[in-house]
Design a protein around this nucleic acid. Structure first.
Lengths: 202, 202
DNA sequence: GTCTATAAGCAGATAGAC
DNA sequence: GTCTATCTGCTTATAGAC
């Protein structure tokens, strides 16, 4: 159990600081102090405050995309797949609140080029939902008129909890995941109960 | 059609600036310039940048609370009421994106006292949903195990669209309202279709 | 790789003329 | 009530010693 390298200590500190106070309200001194370093040490490892945000934001987007793709690959049955996806997507946002808050709310602080890159990851995430719901409609088990509209609403349901969720509260990531999974199935017209298969959380 | 008073020009400019860039990234010079005034003019009408945020945030919270209470009063039938509420709540967030963004995402920038005040309005909004769903459960027309959990998820669905909604896009506030209203009914176990009654938008 | 010291600029807020 | 000018402090980022 050795101490984390300085570079990762800084990105971890940046995640917490950006999540708590927002990018613009966070000072580079705040980040370096949280990482146990002097203000100047930050610039040995990162070119600028925006670059630090970009690293946090892009790696967070990629992690989230891989997570939802893994969840979408857990079952060939549309009903079970959507339940697993909504459970995993919700649990992820409840367990990675700090990182997800930076991912979701600090896009405007990125440079235009960096913003374009992460916008691509976001479209990829929407596409996973879109395809899963389309699959269920085509197989005749889902009843949905507006597939993109329902996709966005299901994604919103999970993402918005990073705005208010607090780990010390009564709700666990798994309990929220089960509620949202049931609401997802009901939203696409599946009336019977299907328990989500809980893939191991990282 | 006379020009708006300086005070309102400033709060309107602050809503746009805070919504576009966030509280901390917005400068008082940005606000006063948008309102067509010099930097010093802002302080004739508002004590500080935080006071300006507080006025925007509290009036926005109160407006939203009154809107959802009005929607909850449109029908005594739990099914029709929930449909009307989710339609109105969604349409409101799509038509008041800028103000709602400040309301939802800039709470951390308020002083602790101001934050406590708006937290009360937020609980009131949740309570309106909570009571509407409880009413449907007690009358035997809704099937919901976790009433607060479903309430929060329905609220999240509408609120999160201020994160991504753009008026120039293809979706109208009304089309989003109808999708969300149907998803709300399905989420509480109502399987038949009920069109939301559209109260006039302000 | 870390530190101290500091440069250069911009922020919120105020003073005082008109 | 609006302006110009300015104060004061804090920000990002860099220089250079160890």
């Amino acid at each position: 159990m050795t101490e984390a390298p300085a570079r990762k200590r800084l990105t971890d500190a940046a995640i917490d600081a950006f999540a708590e106070r927002g990018f613009h309200a966070t000072t580079t001194r705040d980040i370096s102090t949280r990482a146990g370093m002097s203000p100047a040490a930050l610039y040995v490892h990162h070119a600028s405050k925006e670059q630090l945000l970009y690293e946090v934001s892009s790696s967070g987007h990629i992690e989230c995309l891989e997570m939802i793709r893994a969840a979408a690959a857990t079952s060939a049955d549309p009903v079970q797949r959507l339940a697993n996806m909504q459970f995993a997507f919700t649990r992820y946002h409840a367990t990675h609140t700090a990182g997800a808050r930076v991912v979701q709310y600090e896009i405007a602080a990125l440079t235009p080029e960096h913003r374009r890159e992460v916008a691509g990851y976001r479209r990829d995430i929407e596409r996973v939902y879109h395809e899963a719901i389309t699959d269920g409609v085509e197989k005749g088990v889902f009843d949905v008129q507006d597939v993109p509209g329902v996709s966005l609403a299901l994604i919103s349901m999970a993402i918005d909890l990073v705005r208010w969720y607090q780990p010390q509260g009564a709700r666990t990531p798994e309990s929220l995941g089960r509620i949202h999974a049931q609401m997802a199935l009901r939203s696409v017209g599946v009336t019977h109960e299907v328990a989500p298969e809980e893939t191991p959380a990282d």
